[in-house]
Computed example of a mutant assay.
Amino acid sequence: MTLIYGHRGAKGEAPENTLTSFQQCLAHGVRRCELDLHLSKDGELMVIHDPTLKRTTGRRGKVVEQEAEDLVRLDARHGGPGWKQPCPIPRLAELFERCDFEHWQLEVKSASRVRAARSVQAIKALAEQHGLLDRITVTSGSREVLRALKRLTPELSCGLVAEYAWLDPIKVAQQYGCDYLVLKWTLCTPERIAKAQQQGLHVSVWTVNEPALMRRLADFGVDSLITDFPGLAVSTLRSRG
C-alpha cells in the first residue's frame, strides 16, 4: 500500500508550512507530513522552506537573522492559495503539540557544519521532549546535515533527499546510514525503486500532484508519495483499489 505525505502540510490548498496547512492535511485523514526547517537567530526550529522571508511573508531578511518571537508574528500567506485568516510561521514545537501525525519527514536545508550540528541536536531534543523520536525521519540533500546526523544523533532516523542522479542516490543513502530515500519523481524508475527497497530503504517520492502520476508511481511500488493535494491523493489511490 502506498502511503501519503502532505507536502508542507497541504501546500496546494492552504498556505504552506503553516498550522492551517497541517490541519488541512489531517482533515483529509492524511496522518503523515513533510515540512522544512530553519533555525531562528536564537536557535529555535522554525517551519519555513526558504532561508529568506520574502516569498511567503513579503518581508525582507533572513530567517537566521530574526528571533523566534518576531518570526511567529509574521503572516506566511503570501504566494500560496488564498486564505482569509492570517497564517503565522510556526515553531516546530507548536506543530508537535497541536498536530497528531503518525510520521513526520523533517527536511533540514543545506547548512554550514555548525548550523547542521545545531539543527540536528535541536530536533533530537524536541523530539525527545514530545516523545516522538520513533515518529520522525530527518531528511536532507546536504552532506553536512547527513554527516551531523550520523555523528551526533545516530538515534534519529534519517533520509537522503535526491533531486539529481549525478551520483547514485542509493549508494549515497547507504553511505550515511539512511532509512529513507526521498526521490524527485523524475528519478523514479521501477529498477531504481526495487533496488533501493532491496537495500532496505523506504522510497518516498516528491512532488506528486497529478492523479495519473500518482497511479503510475503506486504501480511502480513506491512506499510513499509526497503531495501538495493530500485529499486528491486519498481519492485517487482509493479509486485504484
Rank of each mutant, 00 (worst) to 15 (best):
Y164P: 00
T186I: 09
Q197M: 06
G159A: 02
W166C: 03
E97P: 00
E13R: 11
T236N: 02
I123E: 00
R240Y: 02
Q198V: 13
S157P: 04
T139M: 02
R135A: 08
H7N: 09
S21G: 07
L183M: 05
P230G: 06
T189C: 11
G79I: 08
V108R: 02
T153V: 14
E94R: 13
C158K: 03
R60K: 15
V205H: 06
V205G: 05
A116M: 04
E67V: 14
E34F: 06
L35P: 06
Q105Y: 08
R216W: 11
H38L: 12
L152M: 09
P15N: 04
N209G: 03
S204N: 13
V172A: 01
C33R: 01
V145C: 01
H130Y: 14
S224D: 01
V114G: 12
E155G: 04
A68Q: 12
D219C: 07
E102M: 01
N209F: 08
L3A: 13
A173G: 03
H38M: 12
L187W: 07
T139I: 15
H49F: 08
Y5L: 11
C25M: 00
R98H: 12
G79N: 13
C158Y: 00
T2D: 03
I4L: 08
A173Y: 01
A125K: 13
Q121W: 10
S119A: 15
Y176G: 01
G131C: 09
Q121G: 05
S40E: 07
V120W: 05
R118I: 00
R147D: 14
E97N: 03
D42M: 09
S239D: 11
Y164S: 12
A10G: 05
A173K: 03
I136K: 05
E69C: 12
D50C: 09
G231Y: 00
I89M: 04
F22I: 06
A173H: 04
R215K: 14
L133Q: 14
I4P: 05
S40T: 12
T189Y: 11
A27Y: 04
A165S: 11
T207A: 10
V208A: 07
G131M: 07
P81E: 05
R59E: 15
A117N: 10
D36G: 09
E34A: 07
G9M: 03
L133H: 05
D179P: 00
E144D: 13
G12T: 07
A173C: 04
T227S: 11
V108S: 08
V72T: 15
T57R: 09
W83Y: 15
H78F: 13
S112Y: 13
V108Q: 02
C178E: 02
R143H: 14
L26R: 06
H28W: 11
R238Q: 10
V63D: 02
Q66R: 15
P190W: 08
R55T: 09
R31H: 14
E191T: 11
L213S: 10
Q121Y: 04
Q198W: 03
R32E: 01
I48L: 10
H202N: 11
L217Y: 10
T57L: 05
E128I: 05
I48S: 00
H49E: 07
L132I: 10
Q24W: 06
L217C: 11
L181F: 02
L213E: 12
T18Y: 00
L26I: 06
D179W: 03
G61D: 13
D219M: 05
V203M: 00
R98K: 15
S142T: 01
F96Q: 02
M1P: 10
